[in-house]
Nucleic acid binder design. Sequence first.
DNA 1: CCGCACCTGACAGCAGCCTGAATGCCCTAG
DNA 2: CTAGGGCATTCAGGCTGCTGTCAGGTGCGG
Lengths: 221, 221
Amino acid sequence: MRILLVEDTTGLGEAVRDQISEDGHAVDWVESLGFAESSVKTTEYNLILLDLMLPDGHGFDFLKKLRAAGDVTPVIILTARDQVSDRIAGLNAGADDYLIKPFDLSELSARVAAVARRYRGNPNPVVQVGDFDVDLRDHRINRNGQPVELTAREWALFEGFLQRPGILLSRAQLEDRLYQFGAEIESNTIEVYISRLRKKLGRDAIVTVRGMGYRLESYDH
Amino acid sequence: MRILLVEDTTGLGEAVRDQISEDGHAVDWVESLGFAESSVKTTEYNLILLDLMLPDGHGFDFLKKLRAAGDVTPVIILTARDQVSDRIAGLNAGADDYLIKPFDLSELSARVAAVARRYRGNPNPVVQVGDFDVDLRDHRINRNGQPVELTAREWALFEGFLQRPGILLSRAQLEDRLYQFGAEIESNTIEVYISRLRKKLGRDAIVTVRGMGYRLESYDH
DNA sequence: CCGCACCTGACAGCAGCCTGAATGCCCTAG
DNA sequence: CTAGGGCATTCAGGCTGCTGTCAGGTGCGG
């Protein structure tokens, strides 16, 4: 599953991210409602973990906006122990479940697994971009019916492109997908992986924009 | 199977948990009705073992609520020897079976196995995946007509794959099937079992997805 | 035509994975 | 009670193929 974590407490955010990641899900961690809103615009999540007290507003505002826009992505609220009124208001605003801070990480896993289970049995969501049918949950790619095998790093890069097909991605953005945020990379690793992806996905799948970056050819322009 | 154990006596709880776990089931152990209620909300169990005298109420209340909500998960009551009236009331409240304390652990295993059998008594308990005909009720597997014998742990793993044939399962997900939720496993047990399953099921039955996990080859893609 | 950005084949090192074997536990038969 | 067998778990050694780097090549822009 792909999960959006909206949490501005650094320690908790890291713990949650690591736990969910170990459970085999992909996590995008943002620390404000602003980033959360832009994230849901560009990416489709299977689950959103939402803290309520955030630097630029209250989580309910985000949740209400989301539901008003017809988005039915499951949302689990992360809230402090005694704010009972919040819990009720949250259910009214469209939350699916609660986790009361401080919560055990195994409890978190259980809730997330429960949401994952609800998806089980349904066919995986398959995204179509250009020639490709991509099963995001399963990391499977078909190009004109032919399966394509990618390594972990290659997939990480490709996934980055998928989230913004046709949009220009800078080298720095791509590096951030492969390594820890802000890790300095001195060699031409990105170029090498672009090359490898092209060999597997087809020469024209990724377009070089000289001096700027790369973009995935999506054919819908 | 995934089993919820509701029991507030530490010693007994541990013994039951260990026994069931050894029988190849996954156990979530909670010590109060409050936790039990949140557990069944987020997780689908195949069986609930329910003590009656609990710190925050009587097990019957939980059971009635469960049935009222339309939940048909089998429930086995764990009760003290002489409370005959409780037994009758329990059956009325929707329990499936009883265990009178103190009970033998082998007796427990037998009851659990019986419920497992009944629970899986769907009209056609034979599942076909790839080359395999799998009888979920009897834990029997035929590969091209040849019977395959699996041990408890091997079966637990294979069952996990069966529930999502062709879908990628992370190591953590597989570990959760074999052990307590969130139990840390440091060695390569999963790999060893994958290896053994391959030896019994055929080299290509399970596909390694490097850095991600494994998936059962289901041939329906 | 030059300079720079980008491409790609090759390769060493090593992470991740596989598997035979050893260990210890438990159960059963005798 | 003891011997033996089956199973779960751990460990070590070996292997595969992924990763990151480099060097030399290609081609674009000016």
